[in-house]
Simulated assay, not measured.
Amino acid sequence: MSSQDRIQQRRRYLMCRPDHFTVSYEINPWMHRAHPTDTSRAVRQWQALHDTYVGLGHQVELIDPIPGLHDMVYTANSGLVIDGVALGSRFSVSQRRGEERPFREWFAAHGLDVVEPVATQEGEGDLMLVGETILAGYGFRSQLNSHAEVARVFGLEVVSLRLVDPVYYHLDTALCVLDPVQGPGGVERANIAYLPSAFDERGRADLVERFPDAIRVPASVPATLEMNAISDGRNVVLSPHPNSFVAQLRERGYHPVPVDVSELHLGGGGVKCCTLELRGARP
């Protein structure tokens, strides 16, 4: 399939400027307090990502950053929004629990029906909508028992996938939804790319069965966050890295759009982590 055949679908995203970004604690393998961070550089890179979305025709909403909440920039972890319903997140780590209330208040103020979660799950970090199915990661941050709650809230099938490599502690670090919704006329176009090594044997088997045409990306040494990417059905915004994933995307007719967010990698997040999709929210 050529890039002319891929259909871009306009998106609405929620982002947060990293005005207070720094690494003052370690809650994932990417974070090292001994490594200095440059907040101004993080802001410049974030702005380039924001401007890339706008330039591609997407709408970007902003939530105000709050001093002391260094990881608010990773808005994908704040919840899951489908058809105007926002299921908030419940963080597994104490350092991020202060983000829960501000995001839920933003959702409510912008016309979303907010559901407060009972079980621990970290939003789109571990919950990814593919067509009419939610792929749900667990093993490091989100709890397996949260998946029943997610299914109940949205009335959709939830497929549980166990993550086994702590470097890929969230699902969105190891899996990218390339065609996230149905195409015109209800034609199913859902497709994904993923790192098989990040999943247990059962998860790998489930992904092969459900997505036989998926892009399977070999693990990189050292590890990268390029799989933490955003696709609108044609354009795939991702962190630049010299490996085969970009070539695989081009072979499938996608248009890779590299954006350097390497400073934000120091907190364990990339392009997708900085981007929460607002499905059905009030304009």
Rank of each mutant, 00 (worst) to 15 (best):
R202E: 14
R250G: 02
P240E: 13
L207F: 13
I215H: 03
R210F: 01
G233A: 01
Q248F: 05
V221F: 12
V237G: 10
D206C: 06
F245H: 03
S220K: 13
A198G: 08
F199P: 00
V217N: 01
V246Q: 11
L238A: 07
A198Q: 05
V208M: 08
S220A: 15
A229L: 08
R234W: 05
A214N: 08
V237F: 05
L225W: 02
S231P: 03
P212V: 10
E226F: 09
S220N: 14
P240Y: 08
A193S: 10
A205K: 06
V246L: 01
Y194Q: 09
S239F: 14
F245M: 10
R202A: 13
L225F: 10
R204A: 10
S197M: 10
L238T: 03
D213M: 10
D200N: 12
R250H: 05
G203F: 03
V237A: 07
E226S: 13
D232Q: 04
A223I: 01
P218I: 12
L195P: 07
L195G: 08
R204Y: 05
L249Q: 02
A219G: 10
V236I: 12
G233K: 01
M227G: 00
E226G: 00
F211H: 13
L207I: 12
R250W: 02
N243P: 02
A205E: 12
N243T: 09
F211A: 05
V217Q: 14
A205N: 02
E226I: 11
V221Y: 11
P242I: 04
D232I: 03
S220M: 14
A205Q: 14
Q248I: 05
G203K: 02
L238I: 03
D200P: 07
N191Y: 00
S220D: 15
A193C: 04
R204P: 00
T224Q: 08
L207N: 09
P240T: 03
N235Y: 13
L195M: 12
D206E: 15
Q248M: 14
S231Y: 04
N228D: 13
T224A: 10
A223L: 03
G233W: 04
P218R: 11
V208N: 02
N235V: 02
L207A: 10
F245Q: 05
V208Y: 07
D200E: 06
L225H: 06
A219Y: 00
V246A: 15
N235C: 12
S239E: 14
V236H: 07
R210W: 11
R216P: 03
R216K: 14
S197W: 04
F245C: 02
H241Q: 13
N235S: 15
D200L: 11
E226M: 11
R202M: 11
E209K: 08
V237N: 06
A229Q: 05
V217A: 00
P242W: 07
V236Y: 07
V246H: 09
S244E: 15
A193D: 00
P240L: 13
Y194P: 00
N191L: 01
F211N: 09
D213V: 05
D200V: 01
I215A: 04
G203Y: 08
S239H: 14
S244W: 04
N243L: 05
E209G: 03
D213R: 10
